[in-house]
Amino acid sequence: MTLTILNAVLFSVVLLLAVGFYGLLITRNLIKIVVVLQTLVKAAIMALVLAGNTSGNPGLGQSAAATVLVADTVVAVVALALAVQVRRRAGTLDIARISTLRG
């Protein structure tokens, strides 16, 4: 496997996914969870661009990627707004300490 640009992009998609999922497992801070989710979505965006390029339809992949950027920003805004409210009500961002709903 030679290091072409496509391979490098593929490698970074896999790396970002690995970092993201590892981060989800170890993170307990709500803000950091939002950052980790962003990492995962960035991997998906690169995957879309890559898929558009390899299948000979780069415009489609790129326009999809741009749309995902917008949608993903909305999700991040909502998540951060919720995190702010959680910090105000519970006084902490640690998910282990705010968790009350079980069973």
């Binding site: 995962l40 979505v41 992949g61 999700v75 409210q85």
Partner: peptide, 23 residues
């Protein structure tokens, strides 16, 4: 708030997986 946050995080991971499937 806790319920909303839980829902958001799980759903967001789900939608990333769907995007990977689409690509």
């Amino acid at each position: 708030l806790e319920a909303g946050m839980k829902y958001l995080v799980q759903s967001a991971i789900g939608s990333v997986l769907v995007l990977l499937g689409i690509s």
